[in-house]
């Protein structure tokens, strides 16, 4: 087979297997093109060939992250590709996350260029834009016709190791990745030019925009508390008795997801703290002292709040790295968004 070898990843829907009812499809592979792969292949011409396609249901993927990614990587590696393409996922959230996650894993493990396509508000876009080239697409599969040529063009460039242009030139979402380039003038001369412009009140372009540290725009207030679904999250380490996920007492490497169905009150018999940063006696005696399930249930019964979300999330804040805390919160956030909660209470010790 001629040309640069490409493997393509799509979900059950684009493979023509079915919609939501087939989203639990386990991963499998097929030789050659499937679904949108044919349009990509047409755009590649002779230079690149889709040698195989890997297909997985979105629900199966997102519910089996730990096992599914190695499985898929193995299938992809079996085709011995030089470039990997996923999607496009448009605005499909779980599909976008899957495309991004597979791209990230392929890039890291197989060390080949990866590319996908998404609508910029797809949650997968923000999560994986640093790891993959994500071609900016429209928000639905109706925009396939526009998405394919841009993806094919960039894939060809990547496959041929050609220089990749700016996000504007190539149509990918800005990765926010810092790179080194050779400017025409040395740094000091650029600084003098910049100062002259700044002094004259002319437009100038900083080479390093200051990241906005630590601020998120406050979201608007709840309109009607009595209809609101409120979720509880804690970094105080409250876990079911026996700490089933073995969350570490400090520098936690994970968070736990726990069901509150049927619990009106947390007690020493049912829950405990995994936190190692403070005296655990009080929290172990009555875990409500860290995670106020008892009060929330009363407020729920009284109709003060609409409902308490029946899943709570717990990790241990003590010694957990800033990056990990952010990562856990991101994952928790995606689930809470999907669950349609209206407000969140985070408790910390």
């Amino acid at each position: 087979m001629a040309g640069i070898r490409v493997v393509h990843y799509i979900n059950q829907f684009f493979a023509g297997i079915g919609g939501e009812e087939k989203a639990d499809t386990k991963p499998f592979k097929k030789e050659g093109v499937v679904g949108p792969g044919s349009a990509l292949q047409a755009a590649f011409g002779e230079e690149m060939t889709i040698v195989g396609t890997v297909i997985c249901g979105d629900t199966y993927f997102n519910e089996n992250l730990d096992t599914v990614i190695p499985e898929i990587i193995k299938m992809i590696a079996g085709f011995n590709p030089q470039v990997f393409i996923a999607g496009p996922a448009f605005n499909a959230g779980r599909y976008g996350v899957a495309c991004g996650a597979v791209c990230e894993a392929v890039a890291r493990q197989l060390k080949i260029p990866v590319i996908t396509g998404m609508y910029e508000e797809n949650p997968g876009a923000d999560m994986y834009k640093k790891s993959a080239y994500i071609i900016k697409t429209g928000n639905s599969a109706a925009k396939m016709r526009q998405a394919i040529p841009a993806m094919a063009k960039l894939a060809l460039k990547l496959g041929k190791s050609e220089a990749i242009g700016t996000p504007e030139e190539e149509g990918y979402l800005p990765k926010g990745i810092r790179i080194n380039i050779w400017y025409e003038k040395r740094g000091s001369a650029r600084a003098v030019d910049m100062l002259i412009k700044k002094l004259r009140g002319e437009a100038f372009q900083t080479e390093y925009p200051m990241p906005v540290f630590d601020r998120v725009t406050p979201r608007p207030a709840l309109k009607d508390l009595s209809k609101a679904k409120i979720a509880l999250v804690t970094s105080g380490g409250i876990v079911p008795k026996g700490n089933p996920d073995r969350i570490e007492s400090s520098s936690a490497s994970k968070f736990g997801t726990y069901d509150l169905t049927g619990f009106d009150d947390l007690t020493a018999a049912t829950h405990e703290t995994a936190h190692g940063g403070y005296d655990p006696v009080y929290a172990n005696q009555d875990p409500d002292r860290v995670l106020p399930v008892d009060v929330m249930r009363v407020l729920e019964k009284e109709g003060v709040i609409g409902s308490l979300h029946n899943t709570y999330y717990a990790t241990v804040g003590n010694g957990t790295s800033v990056a990990n805390a952010k990562k856990y919160a991101h994952a928790i956030g995606l689930e809470l968004k999907e669950a349609g909660v209206d407000g969140i209470i985070l408790t910390s010790t």
């Binding site: 630590d214 601020r215 709840l222 919160a329 956030g333 809470l336 968004k337 969140i344 910390s348 010790t349």
Partner: peptide
């Protein structure tokens, strides 16, 4: 965590915490 939750879930979040300054530096709005 609180910042990320507010950003991702896009709903108001409140931080019940003992050390208020930490909450301020980690960017809690409420």
């Amino acid at each position: 965590m609180i910042k990320e939750l507010e950003e991702v879930v896009d709903v108001p979040c409140v931080h019940i915490c003992t050390v208020v300054p930490i909450s301020l530096t980690v960017g809690a709005n409420r």
